[in-house]
C-alpha cells in the first residue's frame, strides 16, 4: 500500500509545457518535421494532465492546436512512405504548403499565446488524484478493448481504443510508470491509423478509382492490421490494466 506521503507527492507539468514551447519553435522554423509530431505529443500529454486534474478548460485550445499540427503531420507521414504512388504523392505535396500556412497562422494566433500563458500557471497535481482519475481512463480502455474483440467491431472502435489507450499511457507516464505493454499496443494502433489516414486522403482527393490497386492494398492491410491489434490487445491488456480497471 502506498504511503500517505507518496499520495501527496506532487506532479508538475512544467517540463511538458517547456517541451511544447521548444517544439513550437522547431515546428515554426520547419527545419525538422519531427517538431510538428513532438508538438502533437506535448499537446496530448498536457491534455491528459488536465484530465487528471479534472479540468475541462484549456483542452479545446490544445485540441485546436493539435488539429492544425495533425493536418501537416499526416501529410508528412504519407509523403515519407515508400509505397505511396507518385500521383498520390504529387497531390499530397500540393496540400502540404497550405496546411503548413494554416498551421503557422494557428501558432501566430493570440489564442495560442493565451494557451501558453495559461499552461504556465497550471497547479500541481497530487499523486492520489492522478491515480483516481487514471482508474477511470483504465476502465474506459478495458471497455473499449473488450468491444474491439467482438467480431462485429469496426475501425471506429479501434480508433476509440487508440485514443483511450494513449490517454492511459500518458497518465501512467505522469505517474512515472513504465508503460512498455501499452506502447506495443499503441504502435500497432498507430500503424492502423496510418492506413486509415491514407484511405481518407485518397478518398478526399478523389483518387480512389484511378489508384484502385493501391486502394485495395490499403484495404487488405487494414483487415490484417485490425487482426494484429486484436491479437496485441489479448496479449497485452493484462499488463496494461494491471488490476487498475
Amino acid at each position: 500500500m502506498r504511503s500517505a506521503q507518496h499520495n501527496e507527492q506532487r506532479i508538475e507539468c512544467g517540463r511538458w509545457r517547456e517541451a511544447l514551447l521548444e517544439r513550437i519553435d522547431v515546428a515554426r522554423e520547419g527545419r525538422d518535421s519531427e517538431g510538428v509530431h513532438g508538438l502533437r505529443v506535448a499537446c496530448a500529454r498536457l491534455d491528459v494532465y488536465l484530465r487528471l486534474l479534472g479540468w475541462r478548460v484549456l483542452r479545446a485550445d490544445l485540441r485546436w492546436l493539435r488539429r492544425a499540427a495533425s493536418a501537416v503531420r499526416d501529410l508528412d507521414v504519407l509523403l515519407a512512405q515508400n509505397d505511396t504512388p507518385d500521383v498520390f504523392r504529387v497531390a499530397l505535396a500540393a496540400q502540404r504548403e497550405p496546411a503548413r500556412e494554416q498551421f503557422l497562422a494557428v501558432l501566430a494566433h493570440e489564442r495560442c499565446g493565451a494557451l501558453l500563458d495559461a499552461l504556465e500557471e497550471l497547479p500541481p497535481l497530487t499523486f492520489a488524484r492522478a491515480q483516481r482519475r487514471s482508474r477511470k481512463l483504465a476502465t474506459r480502455v478495458a471497455l473499449l478493448g473488450a468491444s474491439v474483440c467482438r467480431p462485429e467491431s469496426d475501425v471506429d472502435a479501434l480508433h476509440a481504443l487508440r485514443r483511450a489507450l494513449r490517454r492511459l499511457r500518458y497518465a501512467h507516464e505522469w505517474m512515472n510508470r513504465e508503460p512498455k505493454a501499452a506502447r506495443r499496443l499503441q504502435d500497432e494502433l498507430g500503424s492502423l491509423n496510418d492506413i486509415v489516414v491514407a484511405q481518407r486522403q485518397l478518398a478526399a482527393l478523389g483518387l480512389g478509382a484511378s489508384l484502385s490497386e493501391y486502394d485495395s492494398a490499403l484495404s487488405a492491410r487494414l483487415v490484417l492490421h485490425m487482426e494484429r491489434v486484436r491479437s496485441a490487445w489479448r496479449e497485452t491488456s493484462g499488463a496494461i490494466l494491471g488490476g487498475e480497471a
Partner: peptide, 16 residues
Amino acid sequence: ADLLSELVEGELRSSG
C-alpha cells in the same frame, strides 16, 4: 471558467 464548464455546450477558449 472551468467551474462554468457544466453550462457550456461547445468550447471553452483562452483569449488574451
